[in-house]
Amino acid sequence: MPSDPTRHPATSFFYREATLIWEARGSGDTTFVLVHGIGMGRTVFTGLAELLAEHGRVIAMDLPGYGEAPEPDRTPTVERLADIVAAFLRAEEIQNPVLIGHSMGTQVIVEVAARHPDISTRLVLIGPTVEIGQRRLGIQFRKLARDLIDESPKVLLTGAREYLRAGPNLRRKMRAMPVHRPELAYPHVPGDVLVLRGEADTVAPREWCEYVASAVPSARLEEVPGSGHETMIKNPDPAAELILKWLADD
């Protein structure tokens, strides 16, 4: 397969004692910024990035302590991760990005929008976490286990590889997710939002996603039939189609 001439090597960005790794592909007026979930890294977005790169510039990142990004001295809160992403967007002078977050990544990008309203953004929340009343790690692990029972080998192998790369401090990093209160940020998200879930997602149930969509001033909820929490890994085509249609309707 020929190499992608629009793909640029991974680069590091350092901000307040933490480093994220990012790479870009594609070109165009629209910039998509992909933010992964807990235990993951930018490689889980490869399929989605390739599809979106046909319609604009795509930036995928490893948050500090995930993927290829080094472990920071302190485990960042969701709010601190959002500040790092916002600092990156400013440093790279990225105008009007479409921020796409998966799972915990949705928590990060809603904080980017709410805490940094000077950065004009549109958000795609894929499988948003964490449901009110379900914010214990044991509950979340059980939900994820149920979701993965019927998943494809591609999803299982990709997830296992990324969880191993996240390192021995993964459990400590996971604690940042359930203590965050995304519902406090939702009403302060100024831009348009697409809430996207797999039809069979047990981690982000429909009732919770309906709440998320209603709590954001301007949001739409869409579902991918026959998919679970890892919908953009198993088959990214439906997710890409829904994202592009939402942008065209905007």
Rank of each mutant, 00 (worst) to 15 (best):
V189T: 05
E111S: 15
I233W: 10
R136P: 02
A60C: 15
R115I: 03
S152C: 00
E131F: 04
L137A: 10
T129P: 04
G26S: 04
A213V: 04
S214M: 12
E23V: 02
E54I: 00
P9D: 13
R42P: 05
V124R: 02
M177A: 11
A87P: 04
V203S: 08
I233S: 08
M104T: 08
G41V: 02
A215P: 02
R146I: 00
P238F: 11
T106V: 11
A82S: 12
R115V: 05
L247I: 11
M232G: 07
F32R: 05
G228T: 06
L148R: 07
A18T: 02
A18H: 06
V98W: 05
G28F: 05
I243N: 07
R136D: 14
W208L: 03
K173A: 03
R172T: 10
L63E: 08
E111D: 14
A49K: 10
L156E: 00
V124M: 05
I233E: 12
R197I: 15
V203E: 08
G105A: 11
L51D: 13
T202K: 13
A176K: 08
L52S: 03
E79I: 09
E230Y: 15
R74D: 15
W208I: 02
E223V: 06
L170W: 04
L196I: 11
R135M: 04
I109D: 02
